[in-house]
């Protein structure tokens, strides 16, 4: 490293200083999601795992001669993988700013913190869309393959595909909300995994043991409440909508509201 004692500071072309347009924040946040080593490998892993899962699903269904295989089947398989990994991406998008302390730089360059958070939220949904499209494209390829092997091909399962898209977006948002609330990567991941795997078990045990608990659990189990989405939201009953909205407020609305409030007010150091 050589040192130049009096290297001149060259002036940047100075235009009249105007605010930072939202599109620019969006492209900056999008770039941040893949230009770190961890971000890049997480995205790579999501893609690779979806591919592997679809491949296994195609082989298993072909070998075992499962009857009702269609595009929706492959979408559901991809959903199992992405409902865990997509929110991880959403969590890291928020928490890495705090664990790596880059929030000091980010919020010094754009002190209107809500705009940065909005950009991050949009980026997380963009990644959801990219993943969903990738998963569906893979699903279509394997569906064709399966059809070629089995002789019959079904492009039905549209309701499952729509349900897949909606639930993945919800999963991403929950990860984002937990991250905003906790501002800590491991804590947010643990809470998300607990929400995803432990909560349904507890609610299930409670419902099995106590009759009164069953009706109560239906209103707080967000995962169960999302199941009807796979049969098409246009087919959902009023009660199913009610349960989805109530449990959604508990697991998504409230954490997100408190999390955003925390980020906007927190001291950044």
């Amino acid at each position: 490293m050589t040192t130049q004692p009096h290297a001149p500071v060259q002036a940047a072309p100075r235009a009249t200083v105007s605010g930072i347009p939202f599109g620019r924040l969006l492209s900056v946040e999008f770039r941040k999601s893949w230009n770190t080593r961890s971000g890049f490998w997480l995205l790579f892993t999501i893609g690779a795992l979806v591919l592997v899962a679809e491949l296994i699903a195609a082989i298993v269904t072909a070998v075992q001669d499962v009857d009702d295989v269609n595009l929706g089947t492959f979408a559901t398989v991809a959903g199992v993988i992405t409902q865990l990994l997509l929110p991880t991406l959403g969590i890291l998008l928020v928490t890495s700013e705090w664990s790596q302390r880059t929030a000091m730089v980010t919020f010094a360059l754009e002190p209107r913190r809500s705009r940065v958070i909005q950009a991050k939220l949009v980026v997380s949904l963009v990644w959801t869309a990219i993943t969903v499209i990738f998963a569906l494209a893979m699903g279509a390829v394997f569906n064709l393959l399966y059809g070629a092997i089995n002789g019959s091909i079904s492009w039905s399962g549209g309701a499952g595909v729509v349900g897949f898209i909606i639930t993945q977006a919800i999963a991403m948002l929950i990860g984002f909300a937990f991250a905003a609330l906790l501002l800590n990567s491991p804590a947010a991941l643990v809470v998300y995994v607990a929400y995803l795997f432990v909560l349904p078990t507890i609610l299930g045990i409670g419902s099995a043991l106590m009759d009164w608990f069953k009706s109560f659990a239906d209103w707080i189990g967000f995962s169960q409440a999302q199941q009807p989405l796979y049969d098409g939201f246009w087919n959902m009953s009023g009660s199913e909508w009610g349960k989805l909205i109530v449990s959604g407020c508990i697991w998504l609305g409230i954490p997100l509201a408190f999390g955003l409030r925390r980020i906007l007010r927190a001291e950044v150091k």
Binding site: I20, V28, N35, T36, Q100, T102, V105, E110
Partner: peptide
């Protein structure tokens, strides 16, 4: 206060973009 996994150039690139 910079992301460990980002290159020095990327840090400046993000700033310039913003």
């Amino acid at each position: 206060a910079q992301h460990d996994g980002r290159t020095g150039r990327e840090v400046l690139a993000l700033g310039a973009m913003t």
